[in-house]
Design a protein around this nucleic acid. Structure first.
Lengths: 397, 397
DNA sequence: TATTATTTGTAAGAGGTAAAAACAAAATGA
DNA sequence: TCATTTTGTTTTTACCTCTTACAAATAATA
């Protein structure tokens, strides 16, 4: 039925499975003693020794010998060998594309950001080629100085990404349409590694789940507001993709049928209720010429405690709470993380938001925590890295 | 990190995995030739022979020899042995509890309903004991005539069920509250098999996924309206449970903040907009004395083409479409199945509903099918059976 | 400082699982 | 009847991990 259950398992795939389990654990939990690996996987010391031996030979991991004493360690007995991932040899490239900036980073399999750059996005509306060529240049730049090519590449994009082939179906802010981003980047930058493309909100959710505020959670919802509203949902430790890959496109969830008409044609979409423009409307700014700077001014005013600015955030709490309550009722996520504009909103109107959420939500017995996304600006980049790592692990032989 | 990936896999668990894969395939796809099993699992004939041999010895499967020719078969070559599940020996009990009826059935591991009963629910509001004792009697009645005890028991309940311990947190229509239904039923009916309890809408979604309109789908959303509104979501071939088990409680999703006040305290919950009472209000019936018979009269009038009755359904289409559009945007399910009151709605106002849905949904590129749940009344029972089978397979050694 | 207890690493052999290969059986079609 | 095709069976082989026994490295203790 599912691919994983239907696949027959021979002894060789058993070993693959165990090797992957070790890599995954090292990736998520960091350096671990051999014994620790044994406890987690249920394998014996001899099996672990054999498996770690293979990973060492393949250059993926390092064992720091007992010679250098581990500092925090206590108790007697022979000190264990610590297994850790060799970030410098096994790393992914992560790219976060946005309207005016492009971030790119080298991220070790162990999760360390080894190198990071951010530059202006040379982006020509309607023509993706210049932007792609810039990306390819950046990739080559980062790769040439390293001893090994990346094991995978991940790209976060503000738009719809079709899961099945990684094509960017639509990215209105970039003017992209049906763009085979991954494939073209592979060609232009001459990469042999797989290139994974994903929606930025989905990837940010993934990053929060693995490295941010959602560690040790099996379920969470990440919601980020900007011009539009995006989300990523993690359920059963898995990022929800839906049938096409568009799961989480909650900007057009209708929370107020009597509200304003959205550009999509419907009335009362959540993003018309809580998006950047809705926030700016509250301080009297309609159709801003430079949205970004208007927002920054608003943040500054709020930071200085100016009543009108704080009021703008407070007024947004009801519609924000409405949508969040819906997500909570639908998913029972246990944890809701806020990103983008919702972070300052939580900062300046936390009480108001929590009050409204409690008032609205239908199921008081459903426990839920509300918090800020921890990774902030880096979420997209780290999410792209995580997606790349997942892709690598999935194809690891 | 997840239970399945973090567990180490020794050779024994490899075999368990393969045995389960065979059982699961037979359960979902029905009798299969050995060769067919090999193609699905990727195992060789010799391995299949060995595994099937073990299952045969354990009484779970039967091989129908080549002696009795298979009818539809063509082509030359030695005719294969067909492996099928022994329903009479390996069966589950499924129970669907509702306010005034209780259904109970014996369902073979292969999916055949071997025996089924429906009786009046001897249900005393506030006191679950008489109802439980009735259930226990029914269980014993069904079990005594069989050669073997059930391998698992599943119960579908109209209420909130906590996933972690199977306790019914709240079932307002039954007057239950924090009831350890599974545990008490095991004691009263003296069952040794595991008893799984689940919300009826979630289980109906599971049944549609495995045996109904959602076969061969990896993602679907099932929505059913009655007095309240419930849903079940299948994503990546898995039933979504959420953190507590309450995922899918969409009755209190707010789709119209300007709407009527719900009993939960909020305004414009979906169930106040599209529930049974909302439907009855459209034909002027407010606070019905006997809701069920009023509904049945409405269905009859609609079936005879009476304009007022049809209008009631048509008027409901906008709020129904609003909520469905939200679910579609959030999940990208590919398939939406309607149950309960939404089935007659689809019958009497299909055009209206589809038109509204197309008008509202924000992402036209997101493909989605809309249809009726196929299993209808039996959905809850079959869902309970499926949950029981899953539980059996999960613990199969 | 020597001893003991504890924990970890290593090596050899055993057991179990599935693959591969060779052979046997049961059907079709010429 | 005989070749062909497909499937089942048996034997051998290869692989993976476990078990067991032993060695190594440290802390606590005498």
């Amino acid at each position: 039925m599912t691919a994983s259950t239907a696949q027959g398992r021979d002894p060789a795939s058993l070993r693959r499975h165990n090797l992957r389990a070790l890599l995954r654990h090292l990736h998520l939990r960091g350096p671990t003693s051999r014994v620790g690996l044994g406890q987690v996987t249920g394998l014996t010391r001899s099996a672990i020794a054999d498996l770690v031996g293979e990973l060492t030979e393949r250059g993926l991991v390092l064992e720091s010998g007992s010679s250098q004493q581990q500092p925090g360690r206590t108790g007697r007995g022979r000190p264990p060998l610590i297994v850790s991932l060799r970030d410098e040899r096994a790393y992914v490239l992560a790219i976060a594309v946005d309207v005016d900036t492009v971030r790119i980073g080298r991220v070790g399999l162990g999760g360390n950001v080894l190198e990071e750059m951010a530059t202006q996005h040379e982006h020509v509306p309607g023509d993706p080629t210049p932007g792609l060529e810039q990306l390819a240049r950046l990739v080559r730049e980062l790769v040439t100085t390293t001893e090994a090519p990346p094991i995978a590449v991940g790209v976060a994009v503000p738009g719809l990404v079709r899961d099945e082939d990684g094509v960017v179906t639509r990215a209105p802010n970039l003017g992209w349409h049906e763009l085979a981003l991954g494939q073209r980047l592979r060609e232009l930058a001459e990469i042999t590694a797989p290139v994974v493309v994903g929606n930025e909100a989905r990837l940010a959710a993934l990053a929060e789940h693995r490295r941010g505020a959602g560690r040790d959670r099996t379920d969470l919802v990440y919601v980020s507001a900007g011009v539009g509203v995006g989300a990523g949902i993690v359920a059963h430790d898995q990022l929800l993709t839906g049938n096409t890959g568009y799961a989480g496109e909650i900007g057009h969830m209708i929370t107020n049928p009597g509200g304003r008409t959205c550009h999509c044609g419907a009335r009362g979409c959540w993003e018309t209720e809580i998006g950047a423009d809705a926030l700016l409307r509250r301080i009297g700014v309609v159709e801003p010429a430079d949205r970004q700077s208007e927002l920054e001014r608003l943040f500054e005013r709020a930071e200085q405690g100016e009543a009108e600015a704080l009021d703008a955030f407070r007024q947004l709490c009801t519609p924000v709470a409405t949508g969040l309550a819906n997500m909570i009722n639908i998913f029972d996520p246990g944890l809701v993380l806020l990103g983008g504009l919702l972070r300052p909103l939580l900062r300046y109107a936390e009480g108001e938001l929590r009050y409204n959420l409690e008032r609205i939500r239908g199921l008081p017995e459903l426990p839920v925590e509300l918090g800020s996304a921890r990774l902030g600006e880096q979420g997209h980049l780290l999410g792209a890295a995580e997606a790349a790592v997942s892709s690598f692990l999935a194809s690891f032989e």
